[in-house]
Nucleic acid binder design. Structure first.
Lengths: 182, 182
DNA sequence: ACCCTAGCTGACCGATCGGCCAGCATTTGA
DNA sequence: TCAAATGCTGGCCGATCGGTCAGCTAGGGT
C-alpha cells in the first residue's frame, strides 16, 4: 500500500482538477490523470467508479457554497443585493478558479448537473435586484458573470496580485451593473 | 453528382460551425457533421483534407477582419482608440457569434493558430490606450473582452433583440473600461 | 455511342478512449 | 503465523475516433 486511500484520492483529484482546467474534461484522458498522479489508470478506477465520478467529486464543494451565497442574498433587496452578490461571487470565483474554468469550458454539457449551483436561479435573483435600472438588466448580469469567469481562468496571461485582481473584478462588475464605485 | 462541390463545401461548413459551437471541436465527430450535412463521413474528407482543415476554413474570415480593425486602431490614441476598439469588437463579435464561441471553448488549444487574429497584439494595444487610467488596465481589457465573448455565446439564454444587445454590450464595455457613457 | 472525370460511398485501418477483471503485493488483525 | 482485506497493476475488451482506399454512379464533352 503506497499511499493511504484518502491521500490517493486527494492526489487524483488534485491532478484531475488541474488537467481538466488546462485541457477540458473531454480533452483529458484517464491515462493523463494517472500519469500526473503517479499511478496506473486502473488505480484511478479503483478509487473512483468512473471518470464522471472524479468530475462530480471535484465540483462537489462548489454547489453548497453558491447555495449559501444565494441564501444570503435572499434577505437583501435592490442595490444592496447586487453589491453583496458581486462581493460574494468574486470571492467564490477566486477560491474556485480551476473549477470555474472547468465549468465554463464545457458549460453546455455541465450546466444541468445536480451537484452544481442553480445558475439560472442566481441570475434571476440578480436580474430582479437590478430591475428598473435598465431596459436589459439580464444582459448586464450575464455580462459580468461571464467576465468574472473568464478573467479568472486567464491565469497564464494575467499575472496580477490577487488583491489587485479582486479589486478590479469588483469594480468592473459594479460598473457593468451600473452601480457607483468609490 | 448530387450537389456541386461549392454547395457541398458550404453545407459542410454550415453544419460544422453550428456543431462546433454547440458541442466544441473535440466534442463533434466527423460522423456528426456528415449526418447533419446529409452525406457520408468519407464525403467530408473528399472535400476537406481532414477535420482540422474544416475548422481552419470556417475560422478563416475572422482573422483578416480583426487585422483590419487593429489597423484602424493603429491611427488612434487614448480614449478615442478605446471607444473605436469597443465599437469594432462588438460589431465583429456580433457578426461572428458562432466562431467566437468556438474560439472561447477551446481557447487554449486554438489561440496560437496562424489564421487567427493576434489577440495578444490587440490586448496590448488596448492596454496602451488605457494606460494611466488604472493600476491594472490589463485586467479591465481582458475582463470586457471575455465578457463580450461569452455573452454573445449565450444565445439560448439571452433572447434580446440584436440592437438592444449591441447597445448593452457597448455600454457595459465602456463602463468596465472606465469610460463615460451618454 | 463512348469514356473520362467529378462526386460520393461502404468497408476497413490503427490509435485511443473509458472501463473491467484476475491476480499480485503489502499490511493488518486474530 | 497465517488468512483476510486493502491497494494496486498489466492486460484485455468493445466502442469510437480520424483517416484511407478501391470502386461505384452519374453527367458532360467528343
Amino acid at each position: 500500500m503506497a499511499r493511504s486511500a484518502t491521500t490517493m484520492r486527494a492526489d487524483i483529484l488534485d491532478s484531475a482538477v488541474r488537467l481538466f482546467a488546462a485541457h477540458g474534461f473531454r480533452g483529458t484522458s484517464l491515462q493523463d490523470i494517472a500519469t500526473d498522479a503517479g499511478c496506473s489508470k486502473a488505480s484511478l478506477l479503483y478509487h473512483f467508479t468512473n471518470k464522471d465520478a472524479i468530475l462530480t467529486e471535484l465540483l462537489a464543494p462548489v454547489g453548497p457554497e453558491f447555495a449559501a451565497l444565494e441564501g444570503r442574498l435572499a434577505g437583501l433587496d435592490g442595490e444592496e443585493a447586487a453589491r453583496a452578490a458581486v462581493a460574494g461571487l468574486v470571492d467564490l470565483s477566486l477560491r474556485f478558479r480551476l473549477q470555474v474554468k472547468i465549468l465554463l469550458q464545457d458549460v453546455d454539457a455541465l450546466i444541468n448537473r445536480p451537484e452544481l449551483p442553480d445558475v439560472d436561479g442566481l441570475t434571476e435573483r440578480l436580474t430582479d435586484a437590478l430591475s428598473g435600472r435598465s431596459a436589459a438588466p439580464q444582459a448586464r448580469v450575464w455580462a459580468w458573470m461571464a467576465m468574472l469567469g473568464i478573467i479568472l481562468t486567464s491565469a497564464g496571461e494575467l499575472t496580477l496580485p490577487e488583491e489587485t485582481l479582486r479589486a478590479e473584478l469588483s469594480r468592473g462588475a459594479l460598473r457593468t451593473l451600473g452601480l457607483q464605485t468609490d
